[in-house]
Structures are given as C-alpha cells and as structure tokens.
Design a protein around this nucleic acid. Structure first.
Lengths: 355, 355
DNA sequence: TCTATTATTTGAACCGGTTCAATGCAAGCC
DNA sequence: GGCTTGCATTGAACCGGTTCAAATAATAGA
C-alpha cells in the first residue's frame, strides 16, 4: 500500500522512485545478478519505502503465460475431495507429482451446470484433470471448450479421443471371477453399478451392451469371460443394476428368496459389496461360509468390513500420479493409459459350502 | 489455436476478423445484451472460425483484480490435505463456504523454506488461509510479506496481531479436567504437546509459562484451573512433554514405575491419548477401570480406539468455515475468534478404582 | 424534416508485469 | 587516442483482457 496514494504500489512506482526504468526494477526482483549492487540497493530501498510487496503474480503470469498450477475439476461439491476415500487416494497421487514438480493444485467444482462451466472457463490453471464420475461428458465438453490440455481420471469413459488414465476393467473383473471359479463356485450373481439412465433391478445383456458407462459394461464382460472359461452358462447368471444402496438390498432379497441362491456374488464396487455384506449379516447368512463376496476398487474401508472384503484393487494413487505426469509431459496430446489391477485377498471368499 | 498463425487466438483477433472493436468483442462475451443481434452473431462466427476459446481468464483477472480463489497454505506436503483427518475436517468446512460463494480453492504447499516462500508469493489468490502447524511463524511472515488478506487457522499462535480462528484452549482443558475431578480422581498426570524447541520428558512450570506454543501452555492452564478448584495441589501434578510417540511411552513408563501412579491422564491431543491407550493395553492396565484417559481434539479415529476415547472436541469444520467467512467479510482486517469446544464422553473415563 | 432520446460502438487508458534488441558507458588493449 | 568488449540500463512491445466516457447511429416524437 502506497502511503501517499492509498493504492497498492506497483513496479513502475518503485522504478520511478528509485530513478530507474521498469525493466531494471523488474530485474532487481527476477535477475538480481544483472543489476549493479548500488542500483539494486536503491531499488530495494524504494520498494521498502512505498511498501511494495514484490512483483504481483498476476502480472507475471500474464506475460509468462504459465500459471504453474493444475486444476482438478469435478461435478461434485468441493468437500468431496476431502471426504470420499476414492477421491482422496487419487488426490494423494496427484499431490505427490505436483509437489515433486513444484506445481500447485486448484480445486474446481460446482454442483450446478452453469457454475461448473464457469468454474472451468475461469480457472487459472495450465491444465485440467477431470474427475469423471457422474457427468463425465459435461466435464469433457467443458474442458475441450476451454482448449486447455486435460486428462480424464478414469473410468468408464468410452471415447477413444479423450486422453485418460484408468484401469483395465475387463481384466480386473476377470481376476475376481477367476478367483471364485478356482474356489469351486458355480452359482453366481452380479451386483452391477449403473449402466445408464435411472434404472435398477434385473437387467439383460442388451442393456449391458448398450451401457453408457463403459466400466460397468466392461466389468460384466470380464466376469463372463472367466465364467465362460470355467464352463459356466453365463446366460443364467443374473445381473442386477444397483445404483443405490436400497437397490442392493432389493437385489439380494430377490436372489435369496429364489430356490437356488448364488454361492458367489460379484459386486462391481466395494460400496455395493459392503452393503451386501451388511445385508447378509442381518439375514444371518454367513460370509464366506455360505456365500462369497468379491468387491471392486479396493477402498480402505474394505479392510475394516465384517468380514474383511476380498476385492479387486485399483491403483488409485498411481492413476492420479500418471494423469499428472501425462499432463505435464505430453501437454494433453491424446494418450490413453490403462493401469493394471490386482486381487486383494481378504476374508470374504471361500470355497462354496459342500453339497 | 488460430489455423493461420498457429498461435492461440485472442480477443483482438476475433474483433479484427469480425470487423468490430475489441470493446464490442469483449461485450459479446460479457454483456451480450449490449450488442446488436446481428453484430453478436458476426463476432461469434468469427470466434468459431479462428477457434477462439472465449476470453482468457488471465486477462480478465488482471483487469478485474480478483481471482476468485482463496489459497490454503501449509508447510506440509500437499498430500497432507487429503490424508490427515484434522486437515481434512478443516478443509471440508472451508469447502462448504467456498462452494456457497462460488470461490475456488488453491492448495499452496512446500516442504522447503524457499519453495514455501515462492509458493505463497506466486499464488494466484485473493486471500490466504494459513494452516499453522509447525511453522506458523514462517507462514505468517510470508503471508504478511505478500500483503494479501489472510487468516490463520489454529491453534497455539499467541500473537494478537494475527487474524486467526481457533478455540479456547483453556476452557477446553478445564472441561476435561473438571470431568475427571467430578468422577473423583485425585492423582493426575499431564501428557503435553510440545512447548517449544526440541525437548521431551518431565518439565516444570517455568518451561510451560515460557512456551512458544500457546495452545500447549493454555491447555495446562485450563487443566490446573480445574484441578485447583477441586482442591488438588497442582504443584505435584507431573507434566511430560511428549512431542513424539516414543516420548509418550517413556512418560508412561516413568509414571507407572513410580509408587503412586496417576488414576487419570490428561492428554493434550488425541494422538497422544491414543498412543497412551495402546501402551496401557500392552501393559495390561485396564482403561477406564484402573486409569482414565481424556484426549483433546476429537479426531474421528478416537471413536474407534480401544476403548473409545473421551475427549475435548474441537469444532474443526466450524473453524474452517469461520476462517473463510472472516476472510471474505473482513478482507483480513485483523480479527481473532475463539470458538467453543465441548466434551465428548465416550468410554475411556470412569471413577477411580476404589482403594 | 428536425430534434430529442436511446441504443450501439469505439478509442484509449488501465490492470502489473516480462523481455529483448538496442544504447550508453567504461574498462582493457594496442 | 582510438577501437573492441562487455556489462548495465532502458525504450518499447507484448501478455489478454475490461471498462468508461465520448462518439455515432438508430428510433421516436413533434
């Protein structure tokens, strides 16, 4: 704050007061070696006198063209980044790479469509990481519109023209199902994530094939590849779409009301699996003695479930890391990457009950 | 990207191509109502032709003077924001207010001193929230240097000239100690956080009074106010400084090797309390039958401790909320606020053993 | 048709710096 | 003394917009 004018002091004010040019004043702060000692001291003194805080990053940024920050955008509220375990693990990976490269992180979010658009359009960042969950398409469209390099984090996005880092859903699902067939299971059920528009309950393969969400589809594909390889008739494996926790309960109620309930449940997410675990416990159905359950994702809470959940673990941190790396290295030139997953053996699976 | 020049299209390029002035082109994007339909269409068409992505936020920001984002700065690595439960709760509070006001969050961090300084100096934000843990002074000094409004989140900062939101440590500590005196305890020990420079083990009141960290000191003060009120000779209550987990173990070893071990332990943080709980369990000392333990902070993990930890709960989210509100409302004009804490009764406290 | 209004446009200043080619100057060398 | 070098300094362009007062054009009213 300049004591005389009451306005914030600028570089030109300092230069004027020190009797040097703007260029020299700028050099004092950015390339002090170029400036003679005596002049440098004079400029610094002038700066101190009028209370100049050093070059304003806004000005610097404008001419540098770089902001030195990546934006992370999502359609969820901001708090999501700090609450959701999946998001958090991803952010940790992102943080690590940003830290290592001295890059800042800007969180961009908004519940409403307009706000999100505005948020992405006005974010001061060099690139965007898109946290694609519900509204992947909108997010991607906005990011394209902004004409900034971006990388989508994950997931069921099917469009090959989008730079993205995710996992090989099919392979992961195969892992889960193979584990169960090896244990000897023959009667399966799939509790799936959403395939598309509002819907829940038993679905047929037509809906699966036509899924908006490629992850959900690919995981079914993976499951069925492994089941078929074990000689199981996948046509008879029921698939329930369970977008909400209640849908999980309903699906299980239907499954276990039938004559031949499954001995193995393939849950497409840990959330679904854990909800299933709760339901089975309430109903007194022993896991894994009577029924085995395999989740997907590998969220930390799975370890504390009762019993601890066997699941397919996504390398979530690694996804975050790679996404930033791609953003940095390749400036968003299209590049897709699928990371490998592994099976996390815990205690929710066992051979089927005898007989 | 302009197809001809290969450079990104600018507003002036659009204006030129559409045959209008820069001002009109700007209006098309910001105040479309001011522009005649026909002209607006022409400008939009020109923009589309040369691939103009809309006004660059950098330019807007420079003239607007506002960035519409707050920075959150800490001396920890970035991942800290997503891993530490205390930080996360704070960030959730911050997020809520930012969301409600359409403000973005920029994470500023750096382990090294230089990087932190650079980070704070070059952050594109309208104000700073300082996550004061280890290096509160440095953080505050840098923020002052930057001459941007800021609010410290915290904690033991003692300087009245710093705008800050924290809790009433003395009152909180009083709450904890009163709870124990009411239960009938007479023999106490304090496991304290750091008071200052590297040190650990038994300390005297002189060190407490001279503490660099006001929280640690104030909590002792609060404890002793309540103990004195119950007629206990505070001069005989041992205070152990336990900056590291091992120091907690050492302190307990000393306490329980003595003739008259305490029946109540006042831990200045939940981390310390939980470490104490572990030690007591290992040593086969029953909590709360033989010894009661009260923590401080109210971190979520306390609920899962064995036994669940009775503690003084800080309104962490609320602290975050208030800090942003103060930043927004008062633009950082100095203002300190102490929020109230409450006692969270769980299962780690009980009356002292009969004998 | 002419003037008063109102609706559009625009020139120019401003936001706060960085950077590069060119200039000025002094020391070094023959 | 004259010329070459090299360092220090600077003028001017540039980064990409916003905004306001003034100028111009269009419309309405008399």
């Amino acid at each position: 704050m300049n004591r005389i004018t009451g306005k914030a002091a600028r570089l030109v004010d300092v230069a004027e007061r020190a009797g040097v040019s703007k260029a020299t004043a700028s050099n004092v702060f950015n390339r002090p070696g170029l400036v003679r000692d005596e002049v440098r001291a004079r400029v610094l003194a002038a700066a101190a006198e009028i209370g100049y805080a050093g070059p304003d990053p806004r000005g610097r940024m404008l001419s540098a063209g770089k902001v030195n920050a990546v934006g992370v955008a999502t359609a969820e509220p901001l708090a999501y980044f700090f609450e959701d375990p999946y998001a958090r693990a991803m952010m940790v990976g992102i943080s690590e790479v940003c830290d290592a490269n001295g890059i800042g992180i800007s969180l961009v979010s908004a519940a409403s469509e307009d706000e999100l658009a505005w948020g992405i359009r006005s974010a001061l960042v060099d690139g965007l990481l898109l946290f694609c969950l519900e509204d992947a398409d909108r997010l991607i469209a906005e990011a394209r519109e902004r004409r900034l390099p971006f990388v989508a984090l994950d997931l069921g996005d099917t469009d090959e023209t989008v730079p993205a880092v995710g996992i090989d859903d099919t392979a992961g699902a195969r892992l889960a199902a193979e584990h169960l067939t090896r244990l000897g299971h023959r009667r399966f059920a799939v509790l799936a994530m959403e395939f598309g528009e509002e819907n829940s309950g038993l679905v047929d393969m037509a809906r699966v094939q036509a899924a908006d969400y490629a992850s959900s589809r690919d995981r079914v594909t993976g499951y069925f590849q492994a089941l078929a390889a074990a000689g199981i008739d996948t046509g008879k494996v029921p698939i329930y779409e369970t977008p909400a926790p209640e849908a999980v309960d309903a699906a299980l109620a239907a499954l276990f009301a039938a004559a031949d309930p499954p001995t193995a449940i393939l849950a497409q997410s840990d959330r679904i699996a854990m909800r299933a675990l709760e339901w089975l416990k309430r109903r007194g159905i022993a896991v894994p003695r009577e029924v085995s359950v395999v989740g997907f994702d590998g969220v930390p809470e799975g370890a504390a479930a009762e019993p601890p959940l066997t699941t397919v673990r996504q390398p979530i941190r690694e996804i975050g890391r790679r996404a930033v790396e791609i953003l940095i290295e390749r400036g968003g030139r299209i590049r897709r990457e699928r990371l490998e997953v592994d099976l996390l053996l815990r205690a929710s699976t066992a051979p089927p009950p005898a007989g």
